Lab assay of single mutants.
Amino acid sequence: KSEEHWTCVVCTLINKPSSKACDACLTSRP
């Protein structure tokens, strides 16, 4: 599942699959 985009639970930004934290608010990926 690491190839899928993911949505930040805090700010709802859709992040790149390679991101380990949100690009906007830096919250860790769930």
Rank of each mutant, 00 (worst) to 15 (best):
residue 1 K to L: 07
residue 1 K to M: 05
residue 1 K to W: 01
residue 1 K to A: 05
residue 1 K to G: 01
residue 1 K to Y: 06
residue 1 K to R: 01
residue 1 K to C: 00
residue 1 K to I: 14
residue 2 S to T: 13
residue 2 S to A: 09
residue 2 S to K: 13
residue 2 S to Y: 00
residue 2 S to R: 08
residue 2 S to C: 01
residue 2 S to G: 07
residue 2 S to N: 02
residue 3 E to N: 03
residue 3 E to F: 12
residue 3 E to L: 06
residue 3 E to W: 05
residue 3 E to I: 12
residue 3 E to M: 11
residue 3 E to Q: 08
residue 3 E to T: 10
residue 3 E to H: 04
residue 4 E to L: 06
residue 4 E to Y: 02
residue 4 E to A: 05
residue 4 E to G: 05
residue 4 E to S: 09
residue 4 E to W: 03
residue 4 E to T: 11
residue 5 H to P: 06
residue 5 H to T: 11
residue 5 H to R: 04
residue 5 H to E: 05
residue 5 H to S: 10
residue 5 H to C: 03
residue 5 H to M: 14
residue 5 H to I: 06
residue 5 H to G: 04
residue 6 W to A: 02
residue 6 W to N: 13
residue 6 W to Q: 09
residue 6 W to C: 06
residue 6 W to R: 06
residue 6 W to M: 02
residue 6 W to T: 02
residue 6 W to K: 09
residue 6 W to Y: 06
residue 6 W to L: 03
residue 7 T to V: 05
residue 7 T to Q: 11
residue 7 T to A: 11
residue 7 T to C: 02
residue 7 T to R: 07
residue 7 T to Y: 10
residue 7 T to M: 06
residue 8 C to D: 04
residue 8 C to S: 03
residue 8 C to K: 03
residue 8 C to P: 04
residue 8 C to V: 00
residue 8 C to W: 00
residue 8 C to H: 02
residue 8 C to Q: 03
residue 9 V to K: 15
residue 9 V to C: 12
residue 9 V to T: 15
residue 9 V to E: 14
residue 9 V to L: 13
residue 9 V to I: 01
residue 9 V to Y: 02
residue 9 V to Q: 12
residue 9 V to R: 10
residue 9 V to W: 08
residue 9 V to F: 06
residue 10 V to L: 03
residue 10 V to I: 02
residue 10 V to K: 13
residue 10 V to Q: 04
residue 10 V to R: 07
residue 10 V to M: 11
residue 10 V to N: 08
residue 10 V to A: 07
residue 10 V to D: 14
residue 10 V to C: 04
residue 10 V to P: 02
residue 10 V to S: 09
residue 10 V to F: 04
residue 10 V to W: 01
residue 10 V to Y: 15
residue 11 C to W: 00
residue 11 C to P: 08
residue 11 C to E: 02
residue 11 C to S: 05
residue 11 C to G: 07
residue 11 C to D: 10
residue 11 C to V: 00
residue 12 T to P: 12
residue 12 T to F: 05
residue 12 T to Y: 14
residue 12 T to A: 13
residue 12 T to V: 03
residue 12 T to W: 10
residue 12 T to N: 15
residue 12 T to I: 03
residue 12 T to K: 15
residue 12 T to E: 14
residue 13 L to P: 09
residue 13 L to M: 15
residue 13 L to F: 09
residue 13 L to V: 14
residue 13 L to T: 15
residue 13 L to N: 15
residue 13 L to H: 15
residue 13 L to I: 11
residue 13 L to A: 15
residue 13 L to C: 13
residue 14 I to Y: 05
residue 14 I to D: 13
residue 14 I to G: 11
residue 14 I to N: 15
residue 14 I to S: 13
residue 14 I to Q: 12
residue 14 I to E: 10
residue 14 I to C: 06
residue 14 I to P: 13
residue 14 I to R: 09
residue 14 I to H: 11
residue 14 I to V: 15
residue 14 I to M: 14
residue 15 N to C: 00
residue 15 N to M: 07
residue 15 N to Q: 06
residue 15 N to S: 02
residue 15 N to L: 01
residue 15 N to Y: 00
residue 15 N to G: 03
residue 15 N to R: 02
residue 15 N to V: 01
residue 15 N to K: 01
residue 15 N to T: 02
residue 16 K to C: 03
residue 16 K to E: 04
residue 16 K to T: 10
residue 16 K to W: 03
residue 16 K to I: 14
residue 16 K to S: 09
residue 17 P to W: 08
residue 17 P to L: 09
residue 17 P to Q: 12
residue 17 P to E: 13
residue 17 P to R: 07
residue 17 P to D: 15
residue 18 S to H: 14
residue 18 S to P: 09
residue 18 S to N: 14
residue 18 S to C: 11
residue 18 S to M: 09
residue 18 S to Q: 11
residue 18 S to E: 14
residue 18 S to V: 08
residue 18 S to K: 13
residue 18 S to W: 07
residue 18 S to Y: 04
residue 18 S to I: 11
residue 19 S to G: 04
residue 19 S to P: 02
residue 19 S to I: 10
residue 19 S to L: 10
residue 19 S to M: 12
residue 19 S to A: 13
residue 19 S to W: 04
residue 19 S to E: 08
residue 19 S to D: 12
residue 19 S to F: 06
residue 19 S to N: 13
residue 20 K to E: 13
residue 20 K to V: 11
residue 20 K to M: 12
residue 20 K to F: 10
residue 20 K to I: 08
residue 20 K to G: 09
residue 20 K to C: 08
residue 20 K to R: 08
residue 20 K to A: 12
residue 20 K to L: 14
residue 21 A to E: 04
residue 21 A to H: 10
residue 21 A to Q: 07
residue 21 A to P: 02
residue 21 A to F: 08
residue 21 A to M: 10
residue 21 A to K: 10
residue 21 A to G: 05
residue 22 C to A: 01
residue 22 C to T: 00
residue 22 C to Q: 01
residue 22 C to M: 03
residue 22 C to F: 03
residue 22 C to E: 01
residue 22 C to K: 01
residue 22 C to R: 01
residue 22 C to V: 00
residue 22 C to L: 00
residue 23 D to T: 15
residue 23 D to H: 11
residue 23 D to Y: 12
residue 23 D to W: 05
residue 23 D to R: 09
residue 23 D to N: 07
residue 23 D to K: 13
residue 23 D to Q: 12
residue 23 D to I: 13
residue 23 D to G: 09
residue 24 A to S: 12
residue 24 A to M: 08
residue 24 A to R: 13
residue 24 A to G: 15
residue 24 A to T: 06
residue 24 A to F: 07
residue 24 A to I: 03
residue 24 A to N: 07
residue 24 A to Y: 12
residue 24 A to C: 08
residue 24 A to V: 04
residue 24 A to Q: 15
residue 24 A to D: 14
residue 25 C to F: 00
residue 25 C to A: 01
residue 25 C to N: 02
residue 25 C to L: 00
residue 25 C to R: 01
residue 25 C to Y: 00
residue 25 C to I: 00
residue 25 C to K: 01
residue 25 C to E: 02
residue 25 C to P: 01
residue 25 C to S: 00
residue 26 L to A: 14
residue 26 L to Q: 12
residue 26 L to H: 12
residue 26 L to V: 08
residue 26 L to Y: 07
residue 26 L to S: 14
residue 26 L to F: 09
residue 26 L to W: 05
residue 27 T to H: 10
residue 27 T to Y: 02
residue 27 T to R: 08
residue 27 T to A: 12
residue 27 T to C: 10
residue 27 T to G: 08
residue 27 T to K: 07
residue 27 T to Q: 08
residue 27 T to D: 09
residue 27 T to W: 03
residue 28 S to E: 15
residue 28 S to D: 14
residue 28 S to A: 13
residue 28 S to P: 12
residue 28 S to M: 09
residue 28 S to Y: 05
residue 29 R to L: 08
residue 29 R to H: 02
residue 29 R to K: 13
residue 29 R to E: 06
residue 29 R to A: 14
residue 29 R to Y: 04
residue 29 R to D: 08
residue 30 P to G: 14
residue 30 P to I: 05
residue 30 P to S: 15
